[in-house]
């Protein structure tokens, strides 16, 4: 698919209108925000119907965002400053919002035995570990604040490049979700950049931790940019973004920040990854056990 120029978010049009009635009063959400409920409605009325490939792709992006939201949610009430309880909470909420939209759309292309779409909750709570399609970076443990920031730094630059391009998708729903997400991820990018600079340039201790955090996360960076048959087919059709096409901008932009912070790109071997095919690290099982426990105690219940 074509690559629009990097011009921030001024040129991105939102696909679907509608207010965000779930937003909290402390939270600032861009206007005309697309809600998961809007997508669910489109799915029910047949307006949004993903191809099998698009559904699988939406599942990947939804799982990434869901797993990250689950990780970040743990910080709320444990952050180094109240301002960070709020900031990390905001980022978690944004990611959860994106996850809900992508998963709702994915579920429309993965019907249950009776032919009805799977809901976001069917997918989040009732799949097993090997059925998750997130890449391994997202499930990496929070570690200390520097490790969380390192993960955020990689994720936010990756997601920004991805969503920026996905706004041009031939799949209108994917484009609409990306149009909302890219504005929010732009803020996440700013947040992580500021902290990388602060921690690298703060005290000896914080610099040491920042370097360690980046080294901990970097083995999982390569997996983000790996193409496979699915992304090749979808990219060919203009519906998705080839992961490999994001790498150049990602390397350049993260490289600029690291240079400003007087940090080096970590020289660590890449892990084999495999999350897109259901291969996960040891960490995901615990995360899912906690996330799914209550829903699974009451199968079929509504909340």
């Amino acid at each position: 698919m074509s690559t629009p120029p990097t011009t921030g978010h001024g040129d991105i049009s939102t696909g679907v209108a509608g207010g965000d009635s779930n937003a909290s009063a402390t939270r600032i959400t861009p206007g005309n925000a697309l809600r998961p409920e809007d997508i669910a409605l489109e799915v029910r009325t047949g307006l949004a119907k993903p191809s099998a490939d698009a559904a699988e792709y939406a599942l990947r992006l939804g799982d990434d965002a869901l797993i990250l939201a689950q990780r970040l949610g743990h910080w709320i009430s444990r952050a180094p400053e109240l301002e960070e309880d709020i900031a990390l909470g905001n980022i978690a909420l944004d990611q959860l919002g994106h996850a809900r939209s992508f998963l709702t759309y994915a579920g429309a292309g993965m019907p249950k035995e009776d032919g009805t779409p799977q809901s976001e909750d069917d997918l989040a709570y009732f799949r097993r570990e090997h059925e998750f399609r997130s890449v391994q970076l997202f499930e990496q443990p929070n570690g200390d604040f520097a490790a969380t920031i390192a993960r955020q730094f990689v994720v936010s630059y990756y997601q920004y490049e991805l969503y920026r391009r996905l706004t041009e998708s031939t799949d209108a729903t994917l484009a609409a979700i990306a149009a909302k997400a890219v504005k929010e991820v732009d803020y996440h990018r700013d947040h992580s950049t500021q902290w990388v600079l602060r921690l690298a340039g703060g005290t000896e201790e914080s610099r040491k931790r920042m370097i360690h955090g980046l080294r901990t996360m970097w083995p999982y960076v390569a997996e983000l940019f790996r193409d496979d048959e699915l992304t090749e087919r979808l990219a060919q059709a203009g519906a998705a973004v080839a992961p490999s096409s994001l790498k150049e901008d990602f390397d350049r932009l993260t490289g600029e920040v690291l240079a400003e912070a007087e940090l080096e790109v970590p020289d660590v071997p890449a892990a084999p990854g495999g999350g897109r095919g259901g291969k996960h690290s040891e960490h995901l099982g615990y995360l899912l056990a906690e996330m799914q426990v209550l829903a699974r105690e009451h199968p079929g219940a509504s909340w």
């Binding site: 909290s24 869901l66 709020i86 909420l93 809900r100 998963l103 709570y125």
Partner: peptide, 17 residues
């Protein structure tokens, strides 16, 4: 982290925030 639906999780996170 254990909220039983994604919508409830979202509302709860926003509340604590």
């Amino acid at each position: 982290t254990r909220a039983p639906s994604l919508k409830r999780k979202s509302i709860l996170m926003a509340k604590v925030q």
